[in-house]
Amino acid sequence: MTKEWTPRIVAFFCNWCTYTAADLAGVSRLKYASNVRVIRLMCSGRVDPQFVLEALAKGADGVLIGGCHPGDCHYVEGNYKMLRRFELLKRLLADMGIEERRVRLEWISAAEGEKVKTVINEMTEQIKKLGPLGMPQKFETWDKEIEHLAVEVQARDAAQGPCPTRAAQLKPMEAVHA
């Protein structure tokens, strides 16, 4: 952890438009920030909200989803279906306290290499300002808190003896099963 922190962004690009646009950006030798790691899917419709949550949980500071422009989907309307899920996902993320700007959906056609560059640069800048999300570290803290709580409860139980009401509730249950 001696290195200066830079954002980690996971991108899900559809094979037909955005992935091809990223290839075009390469062929055109456009230069952009190296923070994005692209995962290729056939269609943005394949993006399961769990992919986004998993990426954030595993240490991503942002997630970028790229699909074809509305009406241009190679599979007719997979991008619309992604859009619907994305709207729900945004609410879920807000409830989790994750800033909206960390997760972004962009329509980038196969011809828009330039847009790949601008979106990636913009997003990297934005997330730099937001700072690290640090979910894995948060999980560690939360795990420690839970552990601590468990130890405390155990200690209390040991001091007071088993909870009388709980024992009372359990007994008839056992009787029923017997």
């Binding site: 995962i39 269609c43 419709g45 394949r46 595993k58």
Partner: peptide, 30 residues
């Protein structure tokens, strides 16, 4: 396209070459 896979609430649809395990491990990897 995998749109059905991405939306199945019981994760019972599998897309060859892009199944959940493959993508989750790719996410972890990057």
């Amino acid at each position: 396209c995998g749109t059905c896979v991405g939306s199945c609430p019981s994760a019972s649809i599998v897309q060859n070459l892009f199944d959940d395990q493959e993508i989750f491990s790719e996410i972890e990897g990057v």
